[in-house]
Design a protein around this nucleic acid. Sequence first.
DNA 1: ATGTCTACTCCTAGTAGA
Length: 260
Amino acid sequence: MIKITTWNVNSVRTRESHVADFLAREQPDLLLLQEIKCEEHQFPRMAFKNLGYDAVVVGQKSYNGVAVLHRVPVEVLHPRLPGMPESDTHARFIEVRTQGITVGNLYLPNGNSGGDEGYAYKLAWMEALRAHSESLMDADTDFVLAGDYNVCPTDADFAPRALPAGDALLRPETRAAFNALIWTGLTDATRALYPSETLYTFWDYQASAWDRNAGLRIDFQLLSPRLAERLTDVIIHKDERAKPQPSDHVPLSVKLAKAA
DNA sequence: ATGTCTACTCCTAGTAGA
């Protein structure tokens, strides 16, 4: 069995104790973090090292930033999303390999800031991700693409009035790009096990979103075909959102059975 | 849309991003 968790922590330094508590309690093999909001040298490695976890970090000052905490050895395959230009300095992707599985950890652009250019960047990023998934499929790789997608794929994935009309998370072009990614052959782990439940992974800090359950389902673990066959559990760690000083996202875990 | 949160700076108040 391998347990993989993804969590947008909205600053790893602010959320250090939450993350440490989660590792101690849940013992994932990999914890994929997004929005660490710091550079690599500022990453609080020691707090996690004490719990048996090492980190690979792609950081950036103030914004974005992804990291993989691992208690099993990993090889870093890509520190950025293949297909995006070198001039793109956003720290939004890291891909590692362990136990015969390639794991992409991603923080997809929100797309609501920066006007038309900001939204075009989101769509370009999504197309690069689709092309990357296609190339992994062509190579017959077992892989997971997990993280904060900043996409509500269907109307079942957000609460009524949780988003304004025309938000970048639910525009038709956004959904089309997400579908194109899925159609490379991926399985949304959450929907595979819970096809029709109302499930969210994010509640805004504003407008009493948590108290009103005005949430969004925007964090996903997408599985390649053989890994989808091995899926045994999906856990949305909703209790994290009720804690003091929480992230606005909660962790999402999958368990995959040992390869046959 | 913005009732909140985070990090940064021409740093203790205002801005940007989410």
